[in-house]
């Protein structure tokens, strides 16, 4: 039974409508512009009027935000030339007319293979445009709760964001379990073992590791409230200096050394005394994690 306000089950357009204050959204290069992918068409693959991404501006709790929302149901939210250019353009627009934040609803497996080279370059261009927005003082917040998660280049982009709001159902990583299983074998990663997949890539383990900054219920209102809380905290982008990056380096070195042999999130939870983490309600999980910190 699908909950009526599930974030995971909502389309990109519904997510935008559910996140923003009613009636405040203005779309840039919307579906009426018919900016479809000529590369999909050349391969006889179906195209979409928005090429699988919605970009524009609106208000959230009264504050102006730029919103980018990928449609995971269209080609797995994958990034092609037009799709990527819309995202890049949204970041450039944010630099020209600074909003309070950029809210980035990532739902993507990464590069769209039908236009792989264009997709790879587009993601690189998105990374640079995102850096420019952050350097201009605009925080970028990722929401990851769609069926495609955030993988490939979009997994990197998600981790460049200043906050990452996930649901337990969301997934975050670089190579998808299916890719690893195909190349390295089922012993390395059994992609059909859904519980294992979530213990390695899912929202709870990402929150445990601190990569997700917030864990919320799979509910549009919960995602909206998390963004509203970020807005009211008045946080800017994470500062970006030699000192902060040296500190980040030390933190990552420490984690790589500490977890040198770990292949299952359960091991980390057992170590923390959170052995039943996978079964906990989101609120309880957050409370327990809070007690540990």
């Amino acid at each position: 039974m699908t909950r009526p306000r599930s974030y995971r089950e909502a389309t990109a357009r519904r997510r935008v409508a559910g996140l923003l204050d009613a009636g405040t959204f203005t779309e840039w290069v919307g579906p009426g512009a018919r900016a479809t992918s000529p590369h999909l068409a050349a391969l006889g693959a179906p195209v979409s009027f928005d090429d699988g991404v919605v970009v524009g501006e609106g208000r959230l709790a009264g504050e102006r935000v730029v919103v980018i929302a990928q449609e995971g149901l269209f080609n797995g939210g994958a990034v092609g030339e037009v799709h990527g250019a819309k995202i890049r353009g949204a970041f450039e627009r944010a630099c020209a007319e600074p909003p309070r934040a950029v809210v980035f609803c990532i739902d993507s497996g990464g590069v769209r293979l039908h236009e792989a080279n264009a997709g790879l370059l587009a993601i690189s261009e998105i990374m640079r445009a995102q850096f420019a927005a952050q350097s201009a003082g605009i925080p970028v917040w990722a929401l990851v709760g769609g069926a495609c998660g955030a993988f490939g280049g979009m997994g990197i982009v998600a981790r460049l964001c200043d906050a990452v709001v996930m649901s337990e159902e969301g997934r975050l990583g670089l190579s998808g379990p299916e890719v690893i299983e195909t190349v390295k074998g089922v012993e390395e990663f059994d992609a059909r073992d859904r519980a294992l997949v979530w213990r390695v890539t899912g929202g709870k383990i990402r929150r445990t590791l601190g990569e997700a900054t917030h864990l919320v219920e799979d509910d549009l209102t919960a995602f909206r409230e998390a963004v509203a809380a970020l807005l009211s905290s008045r946080q800017g982008p994470v500062p970006f200096t030699l000192e902060t990056l040296q500190a980040a380096q030390a933190g990552l070195e420490g984690r790589a050394a500490r977890d040198a042999a770990v292949r299952d999130g359960q091991v980390l939870w057992d170590r923390l005394g959170l052995d039943d983490a996978a079964l906990m309600e989101t609120a309880q999980f957050n409370r327990r994690l809070q007690e540990l910190s």
Binding site: M127, R128, F131, A150, F151, G155, I156, V157, A158, R159, L160, L172, G173, L174, S175, P177, V179, I180, V183, K184, E188, F189, V200, T201, I205, R206, L209, E211, F240, T241, L242, L245, A248, Q249, L252, R255, A256, D259, A261, V262, R263, D264, G265
Partner: peptide, 25 residues
């Protein structure tokens, strides 16, 4: 990228993001 369950659990994408930040710095 390296393809491994261990690397994914560590959050390889986050390490790549860190590297990208260093390059941008």
């Amino acid at each position: 990228q390296a393809l491994s369950r261990h690397e994914e659990l560590l959050g390889l994408n986050g390490y790549f993001a860190h590297l990208a930040r260093c390059v941008h710095l």
